[in-house]
Design a protein around this nucleic acid. Structure first.
Lengths: 187, 187
DNA sequence: GTCTATATAGGGATAGAC
DNA sequence: GTCTATCCCTATATAGAC
């Protein structure tokens, strides 16, 4: 019998699913307990700060994922266009072709949790910065690069909203293909 | 002294704010009671089905607003480009320049409320259809027109997500200006 | 139509045994 | 590290007076 019923990674995976699907308020301890296979008290042993700690851990992990899998290829070798396509591929797998919601959307409601909202904003901000950097490297002016980066994030978020509501994943797929164009055009 | 403390319109306005801001799960009866100035029992008198009834009424009303203010100008007189610009102006006022969330986003979490989700999907679907119609009228092929319509909705939703998270309303404003281009381009 | 008061369920969080 | 059992609070919902 293992010391831990579920390991850290597996646990955070399951927590992520719950928060992504139901949002912060909708993610009740009952749902979390069911999804993780751990009782309430066990969850509090792992996360002394309760639900807020869980949400923070989930966000923290998503942020690491963003840095390691999405942003890293952006600063790597290769032409900017190719690097962006690499990022698009990573996004496709992370969001499961549009079937997964984005934590930055689902955790940005219920504005009573100010600390959570700060984490969310920080995550999105870092993402925008990194995208803008690639556009600048490709010769886009600083101001336009930032706008393109914001547009790219907007399109990612928007197509994910449409996917969630309509169960239509076409817009998300098309958006990924258009990402290089959106980010690199001169105007 | 009036028979009703708050009239139907005013009441729905205030309910809308709460659901938009906190999402379905986050919109507790306490918040609703405070926002509307009515006690729990009074709310149940107006909405016998409780919170779910309130959310449906709010969605119903937003749908009417969409038809009367946003979609109507689209089928009115004038060149397609001008009609789209008229819609953009209405959107700007409805979403308060990006400061208001979209109900279709905030009410699409907490997937236990299947009936609510159906309403949300229906609302977005009608919107896409109407946008596609204008694009077709302007000579865009049926398939591309539908894609453009989905892209437009995605961009509206996405810029609203960015606005909510980052408190940056620039992307929303720019998106409104680009709407005619997005919808009417031939490819 | 609105209120106060209350019923009942479920929320988050703890104590203490194993 | 996980469990059962429980606390306390808030949530939704209802009863009945005015």
């Amino acid at each position: 019998m293992p010391l831990t019923k579920v390991n850290e990674d597996e646990l955070l995976d399951r927590l992520t699913v719950v928060f992504r699907t139901y949002g912060y308020e909708g993610a009740s301890l009952s749902k979390i307990s069911e999804a993780t296979g751990l009782q309430r008290a066990s969850l509090y042993h792992r996360f002394p700060g309760g639900k807020e700690d869980m949400a923070k851990a989930v966000l923290e992990r998503a942020g690491q994922w963003l840095v390691n899998r999405v942003l890293a290829p952006l600063s790597g070798p290769g032409k900017p266009e190719q690097r962006i396509r690499n990022m698009a591929n990573e996004l496709h797998s992370f969001y499961a072709g549009g079937k997964n919601c984005c934590l930055l959307d689902s955790l940005s409601f219920g504005s009573d949790n100010n600390e959570i909202r700060g984490h969310v904003q920080q995550g999105m901000s870092a993402w925008v910065d990194e995208l803008a950097k690639v556009a600048r490297e490709a010769g886009v002016s600083a101001k336009i690069a930032r706008q393109h980066a914001q547009d790219a994030i907007s399109q990612i978020q928007g197509t994910l909203v449409v996917a969630r509501v309509m169960k239509d994943y076409g817009p998300f797929e098309r958006m990924l293909l258009e990402l290089p164009t959106v980010l690199l055009r001169k105007k």
